[in-house]
């Protein structure tokens, strides 16, 4: 039986295994430090399609198909899929997955979508509503830029706090039973808004949400940061990671040993001109489904806390002068069965 811990956390009662995972990444990401962990690297931004939006849909379809294949399953075996992306009306997901015939729940959690989808997909299995589920998300630099900012060829200058939207997608297939890694705890974040209005400093806007969820997770579970081999936030970037670590440190949580951020891991800051690091749904998704899962399978990490962060604003709210509501969802993944 699942057990509720504190106000925001649930400990899963069943063995919910991550059966398989798959990633696709863009060329810039493919030139970064995590290059060897991506299953597919796109040669160019449209990936043989007529538009960047179509390319993003193809990315989602490809990673889902690959993850299902590598689990030795067929699409018909998947009871539910949770999917989302950054585009208006979540078209990356709905157009990408429309031919797959899997019962579909669309999500919008901005860049926190991977943790949101993984949370819900795990809970469905734990609640007995499904045997096999999947979660997928994506982002694409070009589709995100044109929706949130300026045309690609527009000559603008980026401030040092600006982050680079990752072109990437990741999918996971989950199953009841199996050999792990297991999803063991889920801490669902609350919306946190500290009044930051600068869309060029999303790390600073989202850091308090990550701090809030992490502190809730530690309080609810009674664990301390050193329980984990790796605590990884989604896309706070270099600016937000430092702030989150400092704020947690002020509250007595030592993050100096095992804490990193997917946005800091995916690019080489200076060499790749990434400014404050990577962002986007595809940032945390491709790092989780690439580097983290592959290293867990090798045994490098036993316990990982994955905390994807999202900035829940829109271009309209920014123009109207509103601040940036943020969220972070935490999922604890372990090589050990929760029953053991």
């Amino acid at each position: 039986m699942p057990e509720r811990l504190g106000k925001q956390t649930v400990a899963l009662g069943k063995d919910v295994s991550i059966l398989s995972f798959s990633t696709v990444a863009g060329r810039k990401e493919g030139e970064g430090p995590l290059s060897s962990y991506f299953d597919t690297i796109m040669e160019e931004a449209t990936w043989g399609e007529k538009s960047w939006e179509k390319a993003e849909s193809k990315m989602q379809k490809t990673v889902v198909q690959n993850a299902v294949d590598s689990a030795g399953l067929t699409l018909g075996d998947i009871n539910y899929i949770f999917a989302g992306d950054l585009l208006n009306q979540c078209i990356g997901s709905s157009f990408g997955l429309r031919e797959l015939g899997i019962p579909f729940f669309g999500l919008y959690g901005a860049c926190s979508t991977m943790a949101e989808g993984l949370s819900l997909a795990s809970m469905l299995i734990d609640g007995g509503f499904a045997q096999k589920t999947a979660a997928v998300t994506s982002s694409h630099f070009c589709t995100a830029e044109r929706q949130y900012r300026n045309p690609l060829e527009y000559g603008g200058q980026r401030p040092p706090t600006a982050q680079w939207t990752v072109t990437g997608a990741g999918a996971l297939v989950l199953s009841e039973g199996g050999k792990g890694p297991y999803v063991t705890h889920i801490t669902t974040g609350k919306i946190v808004d500290m009044g930051v209005k600068d869309a060029n400093n999303m790390g600073g806007a989202m850091a308090p949400a990550a701090v809030s969820t992490l502190e809730a997770h530690f309080n609810d579970t009674g664990r301390s940061p050193d329980f984990y081999d790796l605590i990884v936030t989604g896309d706070l970037g270099f600016v937000g990671r430092e702030i989150a670590a400092e704020l947690l440190g002020n509250d007595g949580y030592d993050m100096s040993k095992n804490y990193n951020d997917c946005g800091c891991m995916i690019f080489e800051r200076k060499k790749q001109d990434a400014h404050a690091g990577g962002s986007g749904c595809g940032c945390s998704a491709s790092v989780l489904c690439g580097y983290i899962m592959k290293e867990m399978m090798k045994g490098t990490f036993c316990n990982v806390l994955f905390v994807a962060t999202g900035a829940l604003m829109s271009p309209t709210t920014l123009l109207q002068g509103d601040s940036i509501p943020s969220i972070a969802h935490a999922v604890a993944i372990s090589a050990n069965s929760p029953k053991s």
């Binding site: 040092p160 009044g195 930051v196 600016v239 509250d251």
Partner: peptide
């Protein structure tokens, strides 16, 4: 975390790397 929005905004101003003004100019 016990910051108010105003305190956080001040803290953030101190933390954020500034644009290299002289180089840019």
């Amino acid at each position: 975390m016990k910051y108010t929005n105003e305190e956080y905004s001040k803290y953030l101003d101190k933390k954020v790397p500034k644009s290299p003004l002289l180089k840019n100019m």
